[in-house]
């Protein structure tokens, strides 16, 4: 059983921790870094509740070892709100009732963030495709799709507002 030092940038902060080789990234995030917004759902690589961004790509943090992310960059749900102001995706889930129990929400939002980073103006089908790795047992997904559409519009308006002010 080997132990490894992991140097990783999490939500903009560089952290350095020694971990057992078998420690999964989701446990590293929740138990070592105490960032409990990332959830453990199915524990079988199916549900996507543990989704985080690794080097900008949405991945299931329950299906990667912490040692593997040495040198990388992680973004979790805690990174999205800045100075108490919700990210457009969080605002969209609030405004459009994109959650009921809320358990899938952090993972859903991180998947949606990757989707919008790649494709700022997705069609409804592209949104449904993009979040198809995240399971929600409450909403029936319609409200989640609307929340992501809300965020896409909001981000686009924000960008054009910035361009105007610049």
């Amino acid at each position: 059983m080997s132990r490894h030092t992991v140097n990783v940038t999490v939500n903009g902060e560089v952290v350095s921790e020694e971990v057992e080789a078998r420690m999964l990234l989701v446990h590293f995030i929740r138990e070592v870094l105490d960032l409990t917004g990332t959830h453990i759902g199915c524990d079988t690589s199916n549900c996507g509740a543990c989704t985080v961004l690794l080097n900008g790509r949405a991945v299931k943090s329950c299906t990667i070892f912490a040692a593997q992310v040495d040198g990388g960059t992680i973004e979790t749900i805690e990174a999205l709100a800045v100075d108490g102001k919700l990210h457009p995706l969080q605002e969209g889930f609030w405004e459009k009732h994109g959650l009921q129990c809320g358990y899938c929400t952090p993972g859903m939002i991180m998947s949606a963030k990757h989707l919008l980073d790649k494709n700022p103006n997705p069609t409804e089908e592209e949104i449904r495709w993009g979040i198809s790795g995240n399971l929600c047992r409450c909403t029936g997904y319609n409200k989640i799709v609307e929340a992501i559409q809300y965020a896409a519009e909001k981000i686009e308006q924000g960008d054009s507002a910035e361009e105007v002010s610049a």
């Binding site: 989704t51 949405a58 299906t63 990667i64 990757h114 495709w129 995240n134």
Partner: peptide, 9 residues
């Protein structure tokens, strides 16, 4: 193959 999250890795 699987789902988009899986396909990223």
């Amino acid at each position: 193959i699987a789902d988009p999250l899986v396909r990223n890795l």
